[in-house]
Write a protein that binds this DNA or RNA. Sequence first.
DNA 1: ATGTCTTTCTTCGGCCTAAGGAGAAACTCC
DNA 2: GGAGTTTCTCCTTAGGCCGAAGAAAGACAT
Lengths: 417, 417
Amino acid sequence: MRSHNASVIANLAFGRPAGVSRSDLARESGLSASTVSAIVADLMGAELLTSSHLARSSGGRPPIVLRFNTKRNHIIGIELGVSHVSVVLSDLAGEVVWRNRVEWYMPEDPPGTLRLIGALVDEARARPEATGELLGLGLAVPCPVDALTPDRLSPRLFPAWSEVRLAAQLHHRVGVRVFVDNDANCGAIAEFYVGAGVDIPDFTFIKVATGVGAGHMVQSHVYRGFSGIAGEIGHTTVDPKGRPCRCGLRGCLEAEIGSGAIVEKALEAIAAGRESALAEVAGLTLADIVAAAERGDALALELIHDAGAHLGVGVANLLNLMNPARVIIGGRLAEAGDLLLEPLRESLRARALWTSVERADVVISSLGEEQIAIGAAALVLRAALADLSLFWGSEAAVPPVSAPVARLWRNGGVGHP
Amino acid sequence: MRSHNASVIANLAFGRPAGVSRSDLARESGLSASTVSAIVADLMGAELLTSSHLARSSGGRPPIVLRFNTKRNHIIGIELGVSHVSVVLSDLAGEVVWRNRVEWYMPEDPPGTLRLIGALVDEARARPEATGELLGLGLAVPCPVDALTPDRLSPRLFPAWSEVRLAAQLHHRVGVRVFVDNDANCGAIAEFYVGAGVDIPDFTFIKVATGVGAGHMVQSHVYRGFSGIAGEIGHTTVDPKGRPCRCGLRGCLEAEIGSGAIVEKALEAIAAGRESALAEVAGLTLADIVAAAERGDALALELIHDAGAHLGVGVANLLNLMNPARVIIGGRLAEAGDLLLEPLRESLRARALWTSVERADVVISSLGEEQIAIGAAALVLRAALADLSLFWGSEAAVPPVSAPVARLWRNGGVGHP
DNA sequence: ATGTCTTTCTTCGGCCTAAGGAGAAACTCC
DNA sequence: GGAGTTTCTCCTTAGGCCGAAGAAAGACAT
């Protein structure tokens, strides 16, 4: 009970980086002023809250400004991509204070990957920006995370990893709790804490890069579905007569707008004699195409435009099915910005006669290249804010957790069923 | 706090119609035996629980069997369809004890509709099966229910109703609380309490009749999305080159498998000279087509088969996006049973190389024609089980509620954020 | 038959913690 | 300078959960 209310207060304070007074907290939490005072005293004793100056009076005693102590701990977030590893060091506000990125092809070398991550973590911890204790390690992985076996990469996508328990080994190596989640879910969490999803309880984040995946926030929680693999928007059908997909079907969203597909389309067009600056580029990548589009290359523009239109179909289906308040687009393709958004919105407007599509609010993520790694860090932040005992220290070497925040709590009450 | 735990206990007892002992409740709720005893005493005092016989001993004192008193109150559930009104009288187990159905075209006559519903409610209350007090009225309406204006039918679909506050008027007329929700959401709730969704926290119910709509249960709660209109699966695209839809697009699921579309397809085929028993039928309806298919008529079989295949595309998209544990199909078309399910599953299997589709569990609802009305009744049951004070009586003429069960509770704790 | 053990349920005392009121602190406005 | 406000704290009260002890009722072994 007390710990739960303490968590509520901590969350409120976290959400008010400009500072809050005790009476604000009482109003917003619905708790009594005396209870709030007691909880604040506890949290200040634990150095989770600090009180600074007095605020301007509004006709009475001026309120004491409380702030969430964002420097009490640091967090390390790791994005494990198929061909790179990104690391961010963040404070408790989710602010990135240091970053690093290494190109690394991970599918076939688990031990090397583990060593690399270990070294990167050591490097991060040694930075002067790493204030306080390390609160935990967040890890974003490039495949669905199954609720039953959170600590195992998909054996189908990464056969070499099938026996590796990555999080457990990292836990052993680093000595702090490790939280794992899918990259798109991490993206959603990043947006929820420091991006375009702040204060929005229901939104969807779509990552469009090599693959296309979505992370859903539903009522301020990551929605994982029955077996933890919700969000596979990449394999929804947007054109039954479209390009073949690695999943065996035709016209999956990923087969149309994944980096590989767009590059292929470009190469096909060039081979067919189409004029374009892209013809000059050796080892064409999506980044090249986006850059060319920004310089006005007709073929590149057309490719991005088509991608936006296709994405619009998928987004329209998503809006109809789930009615999120906002859709946030991230990943490599999102760097095209308005060039992508314009045709996407147009494709949505064509469906605007009906339902939630017309209230659609589609934006591009502004968190940049480390977006997913930031989300991995926010994974830890989220867990700690939901269960403050993570702050009070290593009560036990609890095995790494991933998905579910416990829905039942004991001792003075049982949680929402 | 107490009231919340009482609700937990009541829910557990409700979920065990065969009876539970106090120590079972303690085990399953995580509360202490003494607390459970105290709560049970309260609930028995309020006649919500009754104790009957002793169960067989398992080597010690035999447990006292407690049962949820399903006859303490009755509930009336109303399905307001476009062309009919269904009423069910149910007990607190969601068991239908009386039913009635009237053909009635409702879009243009709000006052007449209100009178009709009033009369039906009076009739139901007068039945001897209506034991105890009337707990509340549940109302399923054939359009999205907006979270901001729950008590207003969609002005776009029902212009004549735009100024009518249906639930408020019913509340005034009948004197009990009225709960409103969309028909597909009611369908989902019906399945959750007495159908194929019992004990499944994440599933989707799809109603395929004139329109096609879905109701999502997410973590045992109805998911309504941002503006309360999630579940518009009828307007997801399953074939961009398909039939025109009333929404202005092509190949919406509803345009392919809604009753109207299937009947039209049948008429077109007959007009094109296709042989079929359907050619004899005047005023062809979907029911005729389903019946003919069951008798082996080739055209009818083909139509149902196509519908199943199209539905499969929509369901596959749903599975990929949301990964529910189960998909339950209801509505008129579902009466085709395996004739529909077979091609649907085949259509899914074609997508089975990837993700959640392969674990798909698709079934047909078995609740029959009153399914939606049962869900309307379950709406009341659900609200009362979540907030037992509804049982203790009319503390106030609270205005009719619809969507959200409060997510924050006071007095001894603040709810899950 | 009798005693022991097990399981279920109740009673009682203790403790945690939230609420409420009184009061102190610190400022504004008249 | 006084009245009024707003913020915060201290103290008392009370709700309600828990644990321990005990009572109830049967199984089972000797």
